[in-house]
Nucleic acid binder design. Structure first.
Lengths: 221, 221
DNA sequence: ATATATAGTTTAAAAGTAAACGATATTTTC
DNA sequence: GAAAATATCGTTTACTTTTAAACTATATAT
């Protein structure tokens, strides 16, 4: 079966791996006209060389040279394109607790051209303060100002949701109502979009689950 | 094909969902002798009722009554058993940055009987301080004391790894060498166990990837 | 007695992963 | 310089896991 080279829809797994390839290239900072093999990418990212080639095939990136690998500059451009790095994104973080602030300064967002422009919370000791995110002064606003902010900053289309699960669904609905088009929910509950909502991207991510798995595996061996 | 009811190996996906069921039961706090249906569990956890039944079937939990659902007390016990909640776990966090500290106070660890007993870091302004984790005073030690700590606290078998990716592999290897049996790696790189290592559980979890996915999806619609 | 809600089970479909294979450019050997 | 060996790719195939749907049975309610 031939790969038809048209744009494919990537799953979360694929996107994660492709991001790793991109970040590996950035980190290695090889000469633009050198080559990197799938084996080398395995070393750096931990993704098997078979999987690397499979991903490139799936994405229509067929620029490899036998016995050498992939031309660094070409690969770099190809990855930037599939990831839409050039377009970047400004996002807000709703819930300025430890997790929210940790995400705000997540190192790898910067090189992906993703920037947190504001945080929101209800806690009086957080609201009104300014956090420093890689040199940028970023404010924490009261959550009441969410609506105003989103309406004034129409380029902000994405929110990271790090509020307690008890209010997560409610705030998600509010965000969607305000026109937010992408949400990552980090509360330990699978949130859902209200019926009939189209064109909004929602990803649920439970960061505690990995530890659950390890605990489980240790007791079941 | 009959379900043979022997203990099955759960994947991360299954464990995550089962944890949600367990946490939903805790949260609802229904009378012990009432019933809860798969539909109701869908409402609370976001997991479809089909998937709920499928999971229970897979796990050999067949305690449902038609037209009523699952007996709350029985279900509660069954879930505790498959998750090994009773045995609990004490874990350490290596890397006391924002993410490390966020995880330390992760609400749902407590109800799963998981407790962080110590954090480790190299930063002078962190080392020596005490953080309060749900009422427990928890120390941040210099990472040099890792070996000593692990050897003195042999019941600690699990570590959460929240260090920069540049040192992640190195510290993972160290942890394994010291006898740690389970590690969750939160750095954006797929770490691997050294060749020949058996009986150690490693899960790689990249918390930034979900946002990457949302950004991607928004630009590819 | 019939209808309905709900479970348990099976089946089918989709997604994801790993492995194998053939092709070819470069390197090595004679 | 020619032939053989090798590294590496692109592609295919097979396998496994995961999810979704459909179906059957039954206890309760009408």
């Amino acid at each position: 079966m031939k790969n038809d080279k048209q744009e494919k829809k990537m799953s979360l797994r694929v996107i994660t791996r492709v991001s790793f390839y991109y970040e590996a290239l950035l980190k290695l900072d090889l000469p633009q006209d050198s080559f990197i093999s799938s084996k080398k990418l395995e070393e750096i990212t931990g993704v098997s060389c078979n999987q690397v080639r499979q991903d490139f095939f799936y994405l229509g990136i067929s620029i490899g040279k036998q016995k050498k690998g992939y031309h660094v500059e070409k690969l770099f451009r190809a990855l930037r394109r599939v990831l839409s790095v050039d377009r970047g994104a400004e996002v807000i973080v709703v819930g300025a607790g430890r997790l929210g602030r940790a995400l705000s300064e997540y190192k790898l967002f910067k090189i992906r051209n993703i920037h947190v422009t504001a945080l929101f919370d209800v806690k009086p000791d957080l609201v009104g303060t300014i956090v420093d995110i890689k040199g940028r002064k970023t404010p924490i606003y009261h959550i009441e100002r969410l609506e105003e902010y989103v309406k004034e900053n129409t380029h902000v289309k994405i929110a990271l949701l790090t509020v307690p699960e008890s209010v997560a669904q409610e705030i998600l609905d509010k965000l969607v109502e305000l026109g937010i088009k992408g949400i990552v929910n980090y509360s330990p509950r699978i949130l859902k979009l209200a019926k009939g909502i189209k064109g909004v991207q929602l990803v649920n991510d439970c960061i505690g689950a990995s530890l659950y798995k390890v605990v489980y595996q240790i007791y079941h061996k």
